[in-house]
Design a protein around this nucleic acid. Sequence first.
RNA 1: GGUCCGGUAGCUCAGUUGGAUAGAGCAUCUGCCUUCUAAGCAGACGGUCACGCGUUCGAAUCGCGUCCGGAUCACCA
Length: 595
Amino acid sequence: MSAENIIKNAVAKAVKELYGLDVAPESVAPQATRKEFEGNLTVMVFPYVKAARKAPEAVGAEIGAWLEQNEPAVAGYNVVKGFLNIVIAPTFWNSVLKGILDTPDYGTVKPGPDSPLYMVEYSSPNTNKPLHLGHVRNNLLGYSLALILEACGYRVVKTNIVNDRGIHICKSMLAWQKWGEGATPESRAQKGDHLIGDCYVAFDKHYKAELAELKAKGMTDEEAEAASTLMKEAREMLRKWEAGDAEVRALWEKMNSWVYAGFDETYRRMGVGFDKIYYESRTYLDGKAKVLEGLEKGIMYRRDDGSVWADLTGDGLDHKLLLRSDGTSVYMTQDIGTAAQRYADYPIDRMVYVVGNEQEYHFKVLSLILDKLGFKWGKDLVHFSYGMVELPNGKMKSREGTVVDADDLMESMVADARKVSAELGKTDGLTDAEIDAISEMVGLGALKYFLLKVDPRKNMTFNPAESIDFNGNTGPFIQYTYARIRSVLRRAAEAGMTVADYSAVIPNDKEIALVQRLADFPATVAEAGRRFSPALIANYAYELVKEYNQFYHDCSILREEDAAVRSLRLALSEATARTVSTAMGLLGISVPERM
RNA sequence: GGUCCGGUAGCUCAGUUGGAUAGAGCAUCUGCCUUCUAAGCAGACGGUCACGCGUUCGAAUCGCGUCCGGAUCACCA
């Protein structure tokens, strides 16, 4: 049992015996004592003052005395104003440490076959351009969230919905036909997603030129857009695609396969993956069917022009279009179709969509409509909504060429890591393969931690000019501490030192602080799962390694002559290393054995 | 205009169900490598927690109002 729980129960009992007041142990909520006071845990006694009819100081003293007498884990206490500071017996902390080391996968809960099933959707790329920084934030948040939920004991299915159909991909296809000159990823030595992205940009360039030309002839914006032959051709291509035109479909499949190969490479390097991928080209028809089914049941209604709508005014929203007057589907319809397939494929208890905050309205509507259509997880689907990544001079605009490309970004982070490592002499004597592996971990660790440590709801600024830091509250700092711990443990093992007998040792304050921090880990994971917050894990990892550093610099582990003390310190190092590794793992960040 | 979200040190951000003198990193300055890894440690400097009122033993945290910033309210996705 954790120190916190022991104190909760003991205080509740003390209050009952002393003052006859019934309090739920949960309401006691002890917290770590501030460093300037003596003690390990602090309980506020204000809530009991009224029942006790005494001053807060007196109440604190009475409860403290009761605890000292009746609870073996309590070794002492002091009272400052209404704060009761409790000293936990040092030997108790040894047993906590032992518990941590004896627990495989400490901090995580294994899902069972009956655990609730969460499906987490993230990434959701369009197939007409490569992934950029915004997608990186999305992917990292989604992947990390899936890992955290799994660590909380839920079954998790990671999923992706690929937006592989529509006018955008037709634009790229058309541009490739017109100006691509038969280019392939091989012939251009370029990733397929980048090649298609270039086609998309080419379309936009020619389209803009055409519009300018038409407007020069005196047309308004709308007239020019309506008269554009390029756009007409793109629409015609989409029509042919929908009709199943063999030639268009073949081109579409070829170009999409290039894009997927490119995406796979990006995902692999980023370290994210999916259990099940859905494609809009295969789900949008289901959406249409679902909507027509809803129409029959009277959940939707049809207007005179043939369009189909949902009336959400009863829920405080508006009327929402689900099928255009020409019978084609909109974004919402496609999401309904995807939901239908997912529901058929998995016994989903809770659906989580990791999508930017600009789509909050969309998911509010989707939730209501899915609920009306009878999906049991529709009502409480979760839109994990996150803020945008902005550049110092504003938002990223693909048309203005101000996007930060995901592949470029990862490459430059790894290159920076390599450079810094070399400058610091960290890589001396290592093989090229080792240097590659370390640079990869450190560069990506810096990027991932940078994106995950902030509250997802907030917009964040990324300055490409200032590369991401490797010092301070960063991924590399945590990785560095881990590598140093591993180094200590390696040397200890080489010298035949053992972590076996540490239970007799009485730890000092810094060691207790470290054990307390380690003891917080399972609760932190649980809360991160409850609050959907990878940032909570990131900040925990940082606090933990800071705590370790303070301990580390305060003692000389390997030179310690008392074998029992040395053993304890090695045990603390071992427990910290394992916890750091697990925590970083939940963020999708690997930790190096040396760096 | 309606709805939702943000506003904490010069900058980037933590701050748990309301708790003690609001915390880190970066930047600036001062010390510390003959010591298991200095991507580090110790310290200094830096705050009207946007503003006002309220709730109470106690508010960055909860409520109401105001100001600023963002998102959204399509037969786009």
